[in-house]
Design a protein around this nucleic acid. Structure first.
Lengths: 196, 196
DNA sequence: AGGGATACATACGCAGCGTATGTGAAATGG
DNA sequence: CCATTTCACATACGCTGCGTATGTATCCCT
């Protein structure tokens, strides 16, 4: 096989590192993930990691950016395929909860990410999911569907509620039943945002 | 000064370790807190730490238990001094947000705690704050003030919303203004829980 | 073709953790 | 009141994992 152009090789290396780190961070967690181990897993060494990402923390940022983009895309699809704006907003939130049930997302986005990089609200990509929620709320507000509230504040609180609900569900002894209770309650709470 | 009984000395040692660790965890964070450093700060060594708490993680648990108890007590006072149940519930939540503005609580309870010990909902002391909220909601539900919802689910979501709101406020460029927006929105959301 | 530039590997030193072991003072029993 | 045991810590050691400094091979440019 002939040699690929250098830029392509680099992209491949970065992708391999991100993938290996994502796997490690998502399973054993950031703190217990040995850089020597998961770089070897990718057929590389820590040298490559430091060259491309500067530090373990830098690599975590890259992993988070990737996951965040995926989450955002999944949310976009859900929101756009709803019949009306309000239903789309509700669906989006439910989808958000469902994503937060995945162990990888819980571990990396909800626990290790905040611990290592600080408040998610301050991340560069700004956890695009919240931006997505904010956008949905802004449209709803413009149409008079929701009350006169600060949309960013509402988006953050709603996402906070979603994430806590998801963790509660995921770690409960009976996730099915817990999920039912949580979704019902969540919808009730969202009703509080509607214009009266 | 005469010698105190042994049990008293032990309690003192434990308290000194917890205090030193709390200071370190709350400022530099759990991961960057050197056991050698903060035990020395307490006039002790890691030997004492391992003897009493088994591990760094064990000490974190002790610190969290202490902070949790303090938070719970603060919430209790607020709730009990309100005119009526609903107002007490609202006040309790606002107080919850205000506590979550404190850097030490953000760092230890909201970021490092979950990263190291896992989902707060599964902690032994179960983050007594949520239990407190659950209790308040249960009383409100019994009196028909809030809608027919699962009180535990609601308590978790409300606390999630509070905590995210608090982090958002604390890290914003204009905490005063952000706080105003957040509290207003928060109250609106809580209204969604009231019986109609 | 040759001389940078760069993508990675290798090598080294150091900090921090966990354990195994030591020690001195307090409790206990006669 | 003395001997023994217990226990609350301190000390010592080895290991793992991180960050940096340095080496090397490959690609790009002229």
């Amino acid at each position: 096989m002939a040699h690929k152009p250098r830029s392509e090789m680099i992209a491949e290396t970065r992708a391999k590192l991100v993938a290996a780190a994502r796997e490690a961070f998502g399973t054993v967690g950031y703190a217990d993930a040995s850089m020597d181990d998961f770089t070897a897993e990718a057929g590389l060494t820590r040298g490559a990691l430091y060259h491309h990402f500067g530090s373990k923390k830098g690599l975590l940022e890259a992993v988070i950016t990737q996951i965040d983009a995926e989450m955002n895309e999944r949310l976009r699809v859900v929101t756009e395929s709803a019949d009306n704006l309000w239903q789309g907003f509700v669906d989006e939130n439910i989808a958000y909860i469902e994503m937060a049930l995945e162990p990888e997302i819980q571990r990396i986005m909800l626990r290790d990410g905040p611990a290592v990089l600080g408040d998610p609200a301050q991340w560069d990509n700004a956890c695009a999911c919240v931006q997505s929620l904010t956008g949905s709320l802004a449209r709803l507000k413009a149409k008079g569907v929701v009350a006169d509230i600060d949309v960013e504040a509402a988006a953050r609180m709603v996402s906070g509620a979603s994430l806590y609900a998801a963790q509660w569900i995921a770690n409960s002894s009976d996730p099915e039943a817990t999920s039912k209770k949580a979704v019902k309650t969540f919808k009730t709470m969202l009703e509080g945002l509607r214009a009266r």
